[in-house]
Structures are given as C-alpha cells and as structure tokens.
C-alpha cells in the first residue's frame, strides 16, 4: 500500500447509517410521489390508450409490466453485487444493508417478471411455459436471488451473513453473462424457430413511450422500496445507538 488514495467525501458519508437515514427520509417523499405518478400514468396509458399489437392484440399490454420487471430484476442483482463488493472492500455498513435489502425485492420482482411472462405466453404461444431463453435465464436469476436470500437467513451473525452473501452475489455476477450466453445458445439448439413473435417488431412511439414511463416508474418504486427496507434494517442493527434511542423516545 504505497499509495494511499481517498474516495470523495460523500462516499464515506454513505457509510454512516445515520446520515443515510436522514438523507433517505428527505428523498423518500419525492421518489414515492414520482413512482406513484409514473406507474399510474404508465399503466393507464398502456392499458387504455396505446394501440394494440397487430399480431398479439390486447395481450400485448402485458409488456408494460413484464419488460420493466425483467429489466429491474437484472439491475437489482447488479446493485446487490456492487453493494456487496463495496461492503467487502470498505467494510461499509450501509452498503451491506443495501445488499441485504436488494435480495427479497429482487426475488419478488423476478417472480413478477416470470409470472407475467407465463401469463403472456398463454394467449401468445398457447402454453403457460415455454423454454424461451429469456424466461429461462430469468428463472435462473430467481434461483440466484433465492440462494443469496437463504444464505443470509441461514447465518446468525449479521456481519458474516453480509460478507457471505456478498461473496455469493459476486460469484453470481461473474456467472450471469456465462449463464445468459449458454441459455441463449441452448435455446437455439433445442427450440424450433416457430415463435418469431419473440423477435420484437419495430415499436411505434405510441407503444414505447408508455413503456419508458413504466420502466422509469419501476425504478422509482425500487428506490422507494429499497430505502424503506434499508431504513428498517438500519434501525434494527443500530438499535443500541443513541440516535435511534432518541427516535424511539420521540415517538
């Protein structure tokens, strides 16, 4: 360690649970309002105003849930692994709590993506489940989430649980591209190319603008859910500290 370099100040502030608690209580209302507005707007737009797909008709409207959920489930895993790495390297408490909070949220969002994919499959492909490459990799992503979550809950010591979860999610992060590639490759081998519907036709703006609104809405929702979970986690772990005691007394 010849060279000692410093990260910017805000990076270290992030490590303070109290600072995170304060700043998140200020940010939460904004994100909550944005999430509600965007999700309501996007859902109404997608359900009632977007034109139906010329091939799939109205079942196409499921895309406004399915795609944002799938995108969010993947970014949530990235965040979990990155937060885990930060907590491993800089021993940052908040990063550890963020990583822990990501797992249940990500798992439920992955379930949402899978469920909507299956329901969408019924009118489109005529079957609830098709071993489509994207559905299969989403299923494996769900398995990875469940693994991290189970590992977290199996270890009693919070610090060790966080570190073990971080190692596992990093291993998963290295694996995700390999899994994705292998599943796609496997899919082309096994699946007769009858389902050309998975090849998205060029979407008109009336279709993709609400989709964009929904994706941003889902991210805002994720920020809210993550902050809420992390805040609860902070309270539970810092319950001996004076500022949490003051919060309790103030109630």
């Amino acid at each position: 360690m010849a060279k000692s370099w410093k990260m910017p100040k805000w990076f270290y502030q992030l490590g303070s649970p109290r600072w995170f608690y304060d700043i998140s209580s200020r940010l939460l209302p904004w994100f909550a309002v944005a999430a509600v507005l965007l999700l309501v707007l996007g859902a109404a737009w997608g359900l009632a105003f977007a034109p139906p797909d010329y091939q799939q008709g109205n079942s196409f409207r499921i895309i406004y849930i399915h795609v944002p959920a799938a995108v969010l489930a993947q970014s949530c895993y990235m965040l979990m692994a990155v937060a885990g790495a930060i907590s491993l390297i800089w021993k940052m408490k908040v990063a550890d709590m963020v990583a822990k909070s990501c797992a249940p949220i990500g798992a439920t969002i992955a379930i949402l993506a899978l469920a909507t994919g299956a329901i969408w499959g019924k009118p489109t492909w005529g079957a609830w489940w098709v071993w489509d490459a994207r559905l299969t990799s989403m299923l494996i992503l769900l398995f990875l989430y469940i693994g991290v979550y189970t590992l977290h809950s199996a270890i009693d010591n919070e610090v060790n649980a966080g570190q073990a979860g971080a190692v596992l999610s990093l291993v998963g992060l290295v694996n995700i591209p390999i899994i994705k590639y292998s599943v796609e490759w496997w899919n082309t081998l096994h699946q007769p190319a009858t389902f050309t519907i998975t090849e998205k036709p060029k979407m008109v703006p009336e279709m993709w603008v609400p989709l964009l609104v929904m994706v941003i809405g889902f991210y805002c929702f994720f920020a809210v859910a993550l902050m809420l979970r992390t805040r609860t986690e902070i309270l539970q772990r810092e319950k001996r500290s004076s500022w949490v005691q003051q919060l309790v007394e103030g109630k």
């Binding site: 494996i140 398995f143 990875l144 469940i146 693994g147 189970t150 590992l151 199996a154 270890i155 073990a164 190692v167 596992l168 291993v171 998963g172 694996n175 390999i178 899994i179 590639y181 292998s182 599943v183």
Partner: peptide, 23 residues
C-alpha cells in the same frame, strides 16, 4: 466454503451451487 460453519449446510449448498452449474 460458504456453508462450512452451518449446521444444515448440506441442503443449502445445493441451493447455492446448482444455478451456477447450468452452463
């Protein structure tokens, strides 16, 4: 390595490792 200190490591290890075996 992750489950060595745990009592019910045997089942847990399956959950953690099987998805990584897929490729």
């Amino acid at each position: 390595g992750l489950t060595v200190g745990l009592r019910k490591g045997g089942v847990l290890i399956t959950l953690l490792v099987l998805p990584l075996y897929i490729p």
